[in-house]
Design a protein around this nucleic acid. Structure first.
Lengths: 339, 339
DNA sequence: ATCATAGGGACATTATACGTCCCGGTATGA
DNA sequence: TCATACCGGGACGTATAATGTCCCTATGAT
């Protein structure tokens, strides 16, 4: 199979391009269905007319159907997408990117999905889908999964689906509040992910701001303490990676801390920790749950982040977590191997 | 891999066509290099302009190079062609056809080449090439090969090339004259094949029409007798298969015999024998050389025939020669497994 | 010297792809 | 209930690419 694609690349690169284009269209439709021509064309960055030609063709091939609400894949289309998944990843050079990144970042494993989250919003969904696939690959029934917050993690939760391998898996938030809006909080995402997986979940009900005494007494509360112990015994942590300043702003970080973050040249953020470009911790939000020191003792750590704009953040953070599995996208990956 | 190709064909229905076209071009160039556009276009049966577009493309891919003497493959092109050889056979389903035909016809071995001799003239060359490859596979230095006549056998002779395995091989005509034009006579083809292989040959100089006494005295001629003994001791017979009526007409068969052939529903012809659809001999041209009864005692028998129009003839004849190796083409093979 | 054959340039003629504009139908929400 | 936004699809003139046709010069064999 490998030689088939290699041979085809040499013999008919022009046709392979067309193939990739059509695959991408099917792929996008499967993620955004039902969707109309114009919206899809804008999303894929191609002219409406060429998209129309292609969708008419694909319709003729019985790969997608149209109705008044828009286009969606037929069963045949879904099946095709599935069989071509691996081939297209190779055709797009994603596998090459994965091995290149793995060496470059010195990280345990890398998964790269097509596209750039910065430019195409649906790529985040694809990141989510890939992350979910990785989770299912590594989880066993009865495991505990600690889930962090952020927009990317929200996409992961959104793409979660039930699976026999996830039977009896317990989802918990990785850490307490970090100042996020409710839709990006670990609690919310944890609950959503569990619901989508038809799994169980436990939440951490703690306020964002914690004085020293309140902290001490809160973690002794039975309801909190039990969850914290569950978190400590988790077999997997899944979290996003953000740009330090962007994250700090989104979380309405107090000016004094903000200055600290900027002064110490923080570039990356993950579950409340801020890192400079060397991967040193320059600031941390004090809260309960998983701490950076705990990570090496967790069996599976999955970091999810995409978009060329996050390349520097990924590079910085991953130095601290070499045994992670990194799920990223083409945009970030190319930026990372490029310089 | 078959499922991958099926999937690709869904997205790109004419993928295989283009692939085959370019493969054919590379293939032909490798055989005829150095060769010019016009000659190649004529040989492939495509217009000069489209061939030009394709070769310009292939040149851009660094698969072939041009100079004043014509086009030839680059090393990269050679390598690609080599990997494509097997790939194309599988992609076109030829391997499947071979196993299907082998079962269906109950014959020792089947080789199927791409295309249909009836529709594309170059396919006969391919048949020839495949046949030559089979011959080289089975012959040992010093062997004697008996060669029959016909247009297909002429193509085999045309495609013969020297080879260490053919060292000291002696080529002889399988039978005496059958009424063919000179270019299709066993003698001519035998000589040509030997020349192409830089091997030795002996011919049978006997007239087509033979009365009883002449026959008896001729086979006692030392020059003739010696060749006849060589023929009897051959280790390989290579022959074509024809449609009975077509062959009879081409050989200007006397009306009385013609009627006999038609009346007895002959459908197949091979080295002067005519068979009905059950494989029974309904007529034979009386001449010297290999007889049908000798065939089972010959170690290697190769029958070469292609084109959908010859399907019935192949099916009928092969019943009489189950231990043959059949070299045929896609057109005939599909017709044979189809009904 | 001649002739056949080589690759490549030039250009008119298609066939195809594409941009653009429009229409009627159907959800959705004010 | 009506305005609105989005849906697929028809229509048509215009780019763009593929192809047929003809010609040129260089080179090697005879």
């Amino acid at each position: 199979m490998q030689s088939l694609l290699e041979a085809q690349k040499k013999l008919l690169p022009d046709l392979l391009e067309v193939m990739q284009k059509r695959y991408q269209i099917l792929h996008s439709i499967s993620l955004m269905a039902p969707i109309g021509r114009r919206a899809l064309a804008a999303s894929l960055g191609m002219s409406e007319r060429v998209l129309r030609s292609e969708t008419e063709f694909l319709k003729g091939q019985n790969l997608l159907s149209t109705d008044v609400s828009g286009m969606r894949l037929t069963e045949e289309g879904q099946a095709l997408l599935h069989t071509l998944n691996d081939l297209m990843r190779e055709a797009l050079g994603l596998k090459e990117l994965e091995t290149a990144l793995k060496q470059r970042l010195n990280v345990a494993r890398v998964v790269v999905v097509a596209g750039d989250s910065d430019r195409s919003p649906w790529v985040k969904k694809e990141l989510g889908r890939a992350c979910v696939a990785c989770m299912k690959e590594q989880l066993r029934p009865g495991d505990i999964v600690a889930v962090a917050g952020g927009t990317t993690m929200a996409a992961v939760a959104e793409m979660m689906t039930p699976d026999p391998k996830l039977a009896d898996v317990l989802f918990v938030p990785a850490r307490g509040g970090l100042g996020e809006d409710v839709e990006n909080q670990a609690n919310t995402i944890c609950a959503k992910m569990a619901e989508k997986a038809t799994g169980r979940y436990r939440l951490l009900h703690v306020p964002d701001q914690l004085s020293g005494e309140a902290y001490a007494s809160l973690i002794e509360e039975p309801a909190v303490k039990e969850v914290l112990e569950l978190i400590q015994s988790c077999r997997m942590v899944v979290h996003g990676i953000g740009e330090a300043v962007t994250m700090a702003k989104r979380r309405k970080t107090p000016p004094v801390e903000m200055e600290k973050i900027i002064a110490r040249h923080a570039v990356a953020e993950a579950f409340g920790y801020y890192f400079n470009e060397h991967g040193d911790v320059v600031h941390k939000v004090k809260t309960v749950g998983i701490q950076l020191e705990n990570l090496p003792h967790v069996e599976h750590v999955i970091a999810v982040a995409g978009g060329a704009s996050k390349a520097k953040a990924i590079q910085a953070y991953i130095k601290r977590a070499p045994h992670s599995l990194l799920v990223t996208d083409e945009g970030a990956a190319k930026a990372l191997v490029g310089d």
